[in-house]
Design a protein around this nucleic acid. Structure first.
Length: 749
DNA sequence: GACCTGCTGCGGGATG
């Protein structure tokens, strides 16, 4: 079901269907007209008999689109039998924002609004539980806690629910948190004993069909899609090439120094170009945020001008982040933020003049979100300044350096952005870790359960529909063997003491894992946090929050690092996760850029020169003619696939006793010559086995998610294969390749 | 070889 905007004469009629008190409130608030999405959402949401996704750019009034009709319905309810709308948001800050936005409107209607998350007092929550009605604004974690803790009374709390509104739907898709959310929605509907109207609010990214399937698994075609008309994006792009100075040897310190010189030249460029206006700078890592924040702030001090550059990332304390947000929002002085994806979604920071992207972004979708922050005023273009750092070439240069991998990825992603393509989000996978959480939660909620009921609630009619029945039985047996649960003589499954302990701690409610962290404190004030795995020694220097500090003391008991202002400073080391997963389409676009000889219009002179070298080297390496290339003792497979498929191929080759590494642009293989690798690839392409157990067996550590360590071996293996690999995709790509090779050979002979 | 998110119940002490 799709509904596109139109300028029909129904518009005023739809407005008139809203509660008169809402109409009056909108007039008084100075609204002159409803936007497309707000107009179109009124009829289906007033009815509330089927699910709806409202997709529109940020700040296009998605919240109002959903709540104007929803509040109209709630306002019509009998006073003795008030109804409930449950709004689920990914961030506490977002819930607080929406609370303020909805309060005035709800007051006019006499409808209570209750925010419910970790920072809300128990007394406030208690008040809602006494009279569960109106709008409840909650996080998935708090909803999990409510189901578990309220146990049998949770059914009464949610009994009046007419809507489940999920905000920033795309931010949940594909993750543990998204799976948990789907399971919570399904469990909540089961509690109230009927289907509840689900409403998804989303940015207009990626494939909307995936979002429909995510919102109502198995019934995507019943989800109505409302998409706001989006004007063409007026974009000004320039990508600058930055070449590091040459180094003589292979010394790591010398290489770091060369990289610093390149980054320092970007600092100078940013200072000149961005001062005097509001901008966002995305350097791709928390450590790099610290580097640029420190350098740009010191540059302001040197020039004796007020500082205009502020850091923002997830390890900084709330106070420091709010200071940066406030600097961007106020209109008196110009301000730019150096940030990670924290400023990519959600929080309102006003409009910015330009976006700087240092290094290739992690995905086209993320690049689009970042650009959406710029050029939001009428008649102003969105401006992107890209910087790609590359190294001088020498005889030992790697293929990635020869092909100018960083610049190449930036160019490919920008070309895809201009074509309107974004990565679809994969929502497949068994998510056995999150299923462990849901099993324990359902047992706790009901004070015990049995295998058949758990299967039915969570898998057969729940969010884990892809879980085979035998594997689910194995998962339960595994939890029994690890003494998390036990079965009594009647077949009732109960929590064992270990399981009780797990469930009674507050850390249970989140589906995603997080590491222990040190708090960094200066003069009694918390600056932020650092992973415990990367401790700092007393006396050492560190840059944090864009300033320089010296460590006074480290308490491993209380997990506190005390610091005082310092003269020098080294960059903090935050442990990254597994890195950006580049999509197949991006890699293929990279190959197309190399094959083409057309000038790329948005490159500066240095970048154009670097791209010319890359194109020359593409032919020099013979990649136009062959995809399996010998390089000394190694063989390189250049097949331009994404990281999921590259990772899978590397594992498959390892299962054939050929050590292989995914380098992104290519897969490196050792232990065989070109003919040997070709033969191995041919053999793999004939593999009918899509089960994958024999490939996954070579992986040492398959633990990735929060409760993976509680899984039986066979469940862990199956979950790993389905979440992290793409065996079918890899085999299909191999078959296409061997088909092409065969027909080429036939043509030659 | 990126990033981000979230959390209850209880007991002790201060306050009205």
């Amino acid at each position: 079901m799709t509904n596109s905007p139109s300028s029909n004469s129904d518009e005023s009629r739809n407005f008139e269907r809203l509660d008169p008190r809402i109409q009056r409130w909108l007039w008084q608030a100075g609204w002159t007209a409803l936007r497309d999405a707000q107009e179109l959402a009124i009829p289906p949401l007033l009815k509330g008999d089927h699910d709806v996704i409202i997709a529109a750019a940020t700040a296009a009034g998605k919240t109002e689109a959903a709540f104007l009709p929803i509040l109209t319905r709630l306002g019509q309810a009998d006073e003795d039998a008030p109804r409930l709308a449950v709004y689920i948001g990914p961030l506490k800050a977002l819930i607080n924002d929406q609370w303020q936005r909805l309060e005035g409107l709800c007051e006019a209607l006499g409808i209570p609004v209750t925010p419910w998350h970790g920072d809300i007092s128990a007394s406030h929550k208690g008040r809602f539980l006494k009279r569960p009605a109106g709008c409840l604004l909650i996080t998935p974690e708090s909803l999990e806690a409510m189901l578990m803790r309220q146990g049998s009374t949770a059914a009464g709390v949610l009994a009046a629910a007419d809507y489940f509104v999920v905000d920033e739907l795309h931010s949940f898709m594909g993750s543990e948190r998204g799976k948990q959310l789907q399971s919570l929605l399904s469990r909540a509907e089961r509690l109230v004993g009927r289907r509840v109207c689900r409403v998804g609010l989303s940015a207009t990214l990626g494939d909307m069909q995936g979002a429909q399937e995510f919102l109502r698994p198995g019934h995507a075609d019943e989800v109505e899609l409302i998409q706001a008309a989006q004007g063409a994006l007026d974009l000004h792009i320039v990508v600058k090439g930055v070449l590091e100075p040459a180094v003589t040897g292979k010394d790591a310190d010398e290489a770091d120094e060369a990289n610093l010189v390149a980054k320092a030249s970007i600092v100078g460029d940013l200072y000149r170009a961005l001062r005097g206006s509001n901008n966002l700078i995305f350097p791709n890592s928390r450590s790099a945020v610290e580097f640029f924040a420190d350098r740009l702030r010191r540059r302001c001090e040197e020039e004796k001008v007020p500082n205009e550059f502020w850091p923002h990332h997830g390890n900084l304390a709330k106070d420091i982040r709010e200071q940066t947000e406030a600097a961007l929002k106020q209109k008196v002085l110009p301000a730019s933020a150096i940030c990670t994806s924290t400023l990519e979604l959600g929080i309102d920071i006003g409009t910015v003049k330009s976006v700087a992207q240092i290094g290739a972004p992690p995905s086209v979708a993320s690049l689009r979100q970042r650009l959406g922050r710029s050029g939001r005023r009428k008649g102003e273009p969105a401006i992107l300044r890209g910087y790609a750092i590359e190294r001088p070439l020498h005889t030992q240069s790697s293929p990635t350096e020869l092909l100018r991998g960083n610049l190449l990825q930036m160019v490919a992603m920008l070309r895809l952005l201009l074509k309107g393509w974004y990565e679809p989000i994969s929502v497949s996978g068994l998510h056995a870790s999150t299923l462990v959480q849901q099993v324990l939660s359902v047992i706790a909620q009901n004070g015990g359960s049995n295998a058949g009921r758990l299967w039915e609630v969570l898998c057969e009619h729940g969010a884990f529909g892809g879980m085979p029945r035998e594997l689910f039985a194995s998962l339960l047996r595994g939890l029994g063997a690890k003494e998390i649960i036990f079965q009594d003589a009647t077949g009732l499954i109960l929590l064992a003491p270990k399981g009780e302990k797990l469930c009674s701690h507050y850390s249970f409610y989140a589906a995603f894992s997080s590491q222990e962290e040190f708090r960094i404190v200066a003069n009694g004030e918390t600056l932020g946090s650092m992973p415990v795995s990367r401790p700092l020694a007393p006396g050492s220097f560190v840059i944090f929050g864009g300033r320089r500090w010296q460590v006074i003391s480290v308490s491993t008991e209380e997990l506190v690092i005390e610091v005082k202002p310092g003269a020098a400073g080294a960059l903090p080391n935050f442990e990254g996760q597994y890195g950006a997963m580049i999509h197949d389409r991006v890699r293929q676009e990279m190959r197309d850029v190399l094959r083409s000889s057309d000038a790329v219009p948005f490159l500066d002179k240095a970048a154009a020169q670097l791209l010319a070298e890359a194109r020359q080297n593409y032919h020099g390496l013979g990649l136009e003619k062959t995809w399996v290339r010998e390089a000394g003792a190694e063989v390189h497979v250049f097949w331009w696939m994404g990281d999921r498929i590259n990772d899978t191929l590397a594992l498959m080759l390892q299962a054939l006793q050929l050590p292989a590494i995914n380098h992104g642009l290519y897969v490196e293989v050792r232990g065989a010559d070109r003919a040997g690798v070709r033969e191995a690839l041919r053999e793999l392409s004939r593999t009918p086995d899509a089960h994958g157990a024999r490939f996954a067996a070579t992986v040492q550590n398959k633990i990735r998610e929060k409760w993976d360590s509680l899984l039986a071996d066979d469940v862990l293996e199956a979950s790993f294969v389905s979440n992290s690999l793409d065996i079918e995709g890899t085999l299909a790509a191999l078959r296409v390749r061997s088909e092409l090779t065969r027909s080429k050979q036939a043509g030659l002979s």
